[in-house]
Amino acid sequence: MTDDSLVVTDLHVEFSGFVAVGGVSFDAHPGEVRFLIGPNGAGKTTCIDAVTGLAKATGSARLGERELLGRPVHKIVRLGIGRTFQTASVFDELTVLQNLDIAAGRHRPSVSLLRARRGVEESIEQALEETGLAGELATPAGILSHGQKQWLEIAMLLVQDAKVLLLDEPVAGMSQDERTATGELLQRIAAKRIVLVVEHDMDFMRRFATRVTVLHQGKVLSQGTVADVQADPRVQEVYLGTAGAATTAAMSAVPEPVAGTRQGQED
């Protein structure tokens, strides 16, 4: 393991008796686009919640040498962990620039908060460039399209200079072109950072994943490259309900859950 990897070992999360995550281990390194998939309720979001301090968990989640579990949310963020949410959450009343400016703020001394912003910082300009939002600088985030909001969230993680990006269903509700653009963006980002994506969209996963972990009922079902996972009969069973009957081709025919209708039902 390199110094700057995210290593999760034997993660347990319980909600008043119900085991949502029961002993999950995985790791993620810079340079790969890491995927976490699984049927509804498998515990994917809960894993991210645990790593970011939102859900109380036992086990271990380390970034390099540092243990993350047990720290308050904002301290974990300051260690370089950034996340997005299943429902896009940006500050609707603020402009794109203001959203990014706030995200960039944790590196500034607190006194500088009392001054007004002048100009646009370079890191913000870069992030705008990367995510194709440069034209929307002064647009209130609330009136961005759904896809743009998700890009804004990614841009916020970039200016925040997160070492780890945990993305919860980043392409839900996006068109095919937008998905491709997002996937390519994630590949670029992953060169220097750890990118962990939770997704339902199998097609997206196949095109962009370097390694995949499949969760089912709070446990790791399978782990490996896209091909490994697709060939795993247990995965096929979970996704199709009929053991063995599935082929790789069949799995790729798994209908995507209709994105959008899922939005807002959780979180």
Binding site: I102, L113, R115
Partner: peptide, 24 residues
């Protein structure tokens, strides 16, 4: 007009989101 003012509005509208940007 300061950054604090923007941060305050952000905190009012989405306190938890602000937390995930590394602020308390």
């Amino acid at each position: 007009r300061s950054r604090f003012g923007e941060l305050l509005v952000a905190t009012r509208d989405a306190e938890e989101r602000v937390r995930f940007l590394g602020y308390d």
